[in-house]
Nucleic acid binder design. Structure first.
Lengths: 146, 146
DNA sequence: CCTTGAGTTGAAGCTCACTTCAACTTGCAG
DNA sequence: CTGCAAGTTGAAGTGAGCTTCAACTCAAGG
């Protein structure tokens, strides 16, 4: 019917509030053309961009970084399959890292925090960190990134 | 040597800034005794609490909720192994959920956003959401929790 | 004792990611 | 043509999670 979306339509379709979409636009994450009366109109390809933004934000990537990644997409034309594939490959490793981090955290929680060792003094990890190694990491080790 | 930790020691051992520790204390997430000169002294078991707080916050649990969970720990005494086990079991399922969500996101990113379908119109998911189902979820589906 | 680094407070400030507001304009259905 | 939902703007507000500041006190080594 119409091949450009109003901000309300993009909002309904993406699940992102109009105010947030305007915010994303101010940050340069998405873009629009304007009608004669100055209203925003979005290409359908923006739906994909918004989905990408939400997925990325959900896993903790700051909007600024998402913007930097999106800036690698071609400016003038609608991104091709190849464009998106390139972008999502880089992002995938980021997701994999984040997932791996969380799995480590979960296993530590189970194996160490769950066992009561820090207060019961029956855990190797605790004894190493807290009683043997003065500069020792102890629980800190849990939080290291990368 | 000393069996109570100063705020600086707890900070060094946990990797959390003193200001953040005071903040946690204001919120009731951790507690301390005071010296004659009004300085905080922490029991060693607080290290475990702080580790728990950081792990939980890292996966997106708001501090208020973490506080609610910690409130289930016994007030007077140092928590036992059983106390922590109960707490961490409930939390583990939360971590599992979060991990599963991220895996779903990753797979969708690979299988759908990665393939270029939203702009190339070759993807079932896209066609369903965007062309067949008017109230359809489309990319929104990606973001649903639970 | 003296110095110095560590700790104390409440209040204010900061970043991120938005939302809300007020005052106004557009676009479309009837 | 009219009415009204939907859109526009910049500025200010929100809430989470801290950090910084100023002005001060404490604790411990030399």
């Amino acid at each position: 019917m119409h091949d450009l979306l109003t901000i309300g339509e993009l909002s309904a379709r993406s699940g992102v509030a109009p105010s947030a979409l305007r915010y994303y636009e101010r940050l340069g994450l998405i873009s629009s053309t304007r009608t004669g009366g100055n209203q925003r109109r979005y290409e359908r390809s923006m739906l994909r961009r918004v989905a990408f933004i939400r997925v990325s934000a959900q896993v903790g990537v700051p909007l600024e970084e998402i913007g930097a990644a999106l800036a690698d997409l071609p400016a003038g034309r609608t991104p091709t399959r190849t464009d998106w594939t390139r972008l999502s490959r880089a992002w995938r490793s980021r997701l994999d890292e984040q997932i791996a981090l969380m799995e480590r955290l979960r296993d530590r929680l189970d194996g160490c925090i769950g066992c009561g060792c820090l207060s019961l003094k029956t855990c190797g990890l605790y004894n190493h960190g807290d009683e043997l190694a003065e500069q020792g990491p102890g629980p800190v080790r849990l939080m290291r990134r990368g």
